[in-house]
Nucleic acid binder design. Sequence first.
DNA 1: GTCAGTCGGTTAGCATCGCTAAGCAACTGA
DNA 2: TCAGTTGCTTAGCGATGCTAACCGACTGAC
Lengths: 126, 126
Amino acid sequence: MARASRRLRRERSSEDITDGQYAVLAVLDRRGPSSPSALAEHERVSPPSMTRTVACLASSGLVVRAGDPDDGRRALVDLTDAGRHHLADTRRARSGWLAARLAELEPSQRATLAEAAALLTALAER
Amino acid sequence: MARASRRLRRERSSEDITDGQYAVLAVLDRRGPSSPSALAEHERVSPPSMTRTVACLASSGLVVRAGDPDDGRRALVDLTDAGRHHLADTRRARSGWLAARLAELEPSQRATLAEAAALLTALAER
DNA sequence: GTCAGTCGGTTAGCATCGCTAAGCAACTGA
DNA sequence: TCAGTTGCTTAGCGATGCTAACCGACTGAC
């Protein structure tokens, strides 16, 4: 996994958004506004790490932080329109190399990878 | 993959050897003495990064660097006895959590993960 | 034989990303 | 009302990745 991750990273080196930031944008897109701690738990990262990631996205204008009206401690992070567009652009850019590699595989091999991804996701939640 | 990696890392946080260092020890054990550049290529890492990893292992006495008698530029990295022992210890320590999680899966699911690992290894080599 | 170019490895220095410790403000319950 | 908890952030460290630049050893053309 580590070797594959490093190999993949090489293909994305020219992008202006990091891996962790992209993951957060994707989660916000799929799940809607989320609190920093919910994002941290989902990504299996400590709250301070998520604070930093969110701060970076916010300073780029891709997300906004809003206070929860019911609980002054709580914050809610949400995508901006710029964030949504950026997510779409990044998705397009990232699909290139990996999609080409996946296309070279047998359908059953792609299925194996998909199943393994689900297993790893479940494993990460233990 | 990123989430699973971070989850796994939590289980190893108390160890005295890092992930990359462990990987290098394992490669040396399996393949025998190797040059830094061969190690770097295998791990999909830049030569300077591997230099640092090897230097750290060497200063811990787990590997030794020897010059190639035929080519003065070349270096060969090899395990010391301490390195071999350390590798065995670390292997034992690391197997705990993951082995327990894997034991909870169906045999077919473990097979899926094994196949996926092979596919990812091949993918990393492209 | 020599000297320019290449090659393997390293050093220097930077960015990112993970963490823990500690702080602050908001909430909660005895 | 006030002590404890909770959610988030700030501060600061360590590990890991990179590129640029350097050095000594080799190689090949002359």
